[in-house]
Amino acid sequence: MNKPDCSSKPSGSVSRRNFLKTIGTTAVAGAAAQAESIAAELQKVDAEKIQGPGPVPITLTVNGKKHDLELEPRVTLLDALRNFLNSTGAKEVCDRGTCGACTVLIDGKPVYACMQLAIESQGCSITTVEALAQGNRLSKIQQAFIEEDALMCGYCTPGFLMSATALLQRQPKPTADDVRHACAGNVCRCGTHPRVLKAILKTAGVEITQKTEVIRYADLA
């Protein structure tokens, strides 16, 4: 079997020109109604095209807005967000999919942006922490994080908020164990865990109490 040269089209795939020749001029002429299916077919042809290694046109839909970029295939989604779109809510902490600080939603599902390539994230709806508030109005979970002090340095917070937001969309009334399971992939070094748990459950309408008390030493026997 021939080893394909990666810079050329692999044998057997259909080139754009050949495809148009095949479907014929008549079909193209009557294009209006068929335009969409043709576009889809063309997209299929493009799909098997080899792109890169240099920068290629990539369109990312982030928080409802389309962005046209020129990125190398090796650029991760996290890198694209932070360093090409100036969307710095998602943080780079480990770059290995082990800590969750870069958690974004792709089609509503929490994923590690550092372990997704930007080029494979096209055609999806990407949501970052910047989308949670509506103008000045914080979302319920954001408000709860502030009220319960579920943040300290704040570096893990965007990631936790995305995991929590997705959880509450899937499961409006999670148990404490559901929350732990959903946020197992988010690491915090400052130790906000008890309050993260409390804030998420509070948003779901479940009050849990962490026993804390301030006692005046002078009142002790």
């Binding site: 990666c6 810079s7 299929k44 799909a47 098997e48 095209k49 080899i50 792109q51 890169g52 290694p53 240099g54 290629v56 190398e72 295939p73 090796r74 390539l117 080029i119 494979e120």
Partner: peptide, 9 residues
């Protein structure tokens, strides 16, 4: 390291 990319159908 740099690499090329394609999607398969």
């Amino acid at each position: 390291k740099p690499f090329s990319y394609a999607t398969a159908l």
